[in-house]
Simulated assay, not measured.
Amino acid sequence: MVKENTDSYLIVPLKDPKNNDSYRIRRFHIFIALSILYGGFIFYLSSQSAINVPNESFLFEWSIDYAKNNSIISKVIGVPLLMDIVRYSYGNFDKIAHMFLYLGLGILLHITFRNSGNNTLKKYAPLFAILLGIAYGITDEIHQMYVPGRTPSEADLVADSVGVTLAQIIFWIIILKSFLLRKKGKDPKNLK
């Protein structure tokens, strides 16, 4: 008589089409690695005494021409407001760079937490992404105290926080739009 193996539920196959846990875990580890690499990239940039940026006057002139000639942007936002944004960007190019760098970090952190196996991290991914992003921004500013030619700045920390928060707002808009399309009976994956 052959005895049945009652412990078969303990054996987890490496690849089971019905079980997406291994795929989710791999994806989670990939996003952790990408987040760490991106954080390392920010750390590398913060370690530089001087970073060469493009000629700001070229960017200012290009932005002005683009604002005047692009009717969609000028109609939606309005030329005067757009010109104020361009002038601020011209005068505070480093703050804009901080914001966009941390926007990227905020996107990666959100996706990482969303792919976690922990339900609390999944549910509160935007909050955890903002908290971790701001904490990293604080450590980045502390790190700059020890880099010759660099100084910590509260304005940089604000720009970092805005970037991480803006990433979460973008995700919220995408998720809300997807939810509303599903509610109307349209599958957002099939829209072109």
Rank of each mutant, 00 (worst) to 15 (best):
Q48C: 07
I51N: 10
N52H: 06
D94L: 06
E141Y: 08
I85H: 07
I175N: 03
F100Q: 05
M83F: 03
I107H: 03
S47A: 10
N190F: 10
I138R: 01
G185M: 06
F128P: 08
G91N: 07
S57R: 09
I51A: 06
I111R: 12
A159V: 06
A50K: 14
L127M: 09
K95G: 03
G106E: 03
T165D: 04
T139S: 11
I138P: 06
Y146P: 02
L34K: 09
D7G: 06
E154H: 07
N69S: 12
Y88G: 08
T120D: 13
D16E: 13
I130G: 13
I42T: 05
F58T: 03
G40H: 09
H143T: 06
Y102S: 06
Y88Q: 08
I96W: 10
I30Y: 13
S46M: 05
L34S: 10
Y136H: 11
V162H: 01
K122D: 06
G163Q: 03
S47H: 05
I134H: 02
A97V: 15
L109D: 06
L132A: 15
T139R: 00
K122G: 04
D16H: 07
Q48P: 00
S49L: 00
K123P: 02
P17C: 01
S8T: 08
I85G: 05
S8V: 05
E61Y: 12
M99I: 00
A50D: 13
Q144T: 07
I32Y: 08
I175K: 07
P152T: 04
N69H: 13
I73G: 05
L105P: 12
F31P: 09
G137E: 01
S46C: 04
I169Q: 03
G78P: 05
H110R: 00
F128I: 02
D187Q: 01
K3C: 04
A129P: 08
A155K: 15
I25A: 09
G40N: 09
K189D: 15
L105A: 14
P54G: 04
I72T: 14
A97T: 11
S57Q: 13
Q144D: 07
K192E: 10
P80I: 05
H110S: 09
D156V: 05
I96N: 00
N118A: 06
L180I: 15
R150F: 04
I73S: 14
L121M: 12
N5Q: 11
S74E: 09
I25W: 11
Y9A: 14
I36C: 14
N55I: 11
Y44E: 07
D187E: 09
L166C: 03
G137D: 02
E141N: 01
K184E: 14
L157E: 13
H29F: 08
I36G: 05
E154R: 10
F31C: 10
S47F: 10
L181P: 00
T112N: 02
R26W: 13
L191V: 14
T120E: 14
D21Q: 10
G91E: 14
G40Q: 12
L121Y: 15
D160G: 03
Y38R: 06
Y66I: 00
N118C: 05
H29P: 03
E56A: 14
K177E: 08
R26A: 15
T151D: 15
N52E: 06
S89M: 06
G78M: 12
L109K: 04
S49T: 14
S153F: 01
N5T: 08
N20D: 13
G39I: 02
K189A: 14
P13F: 11
P80K: 01
E141C: 05
A155P: 01
F28N: 10
F58K: 05
Y66H: 11
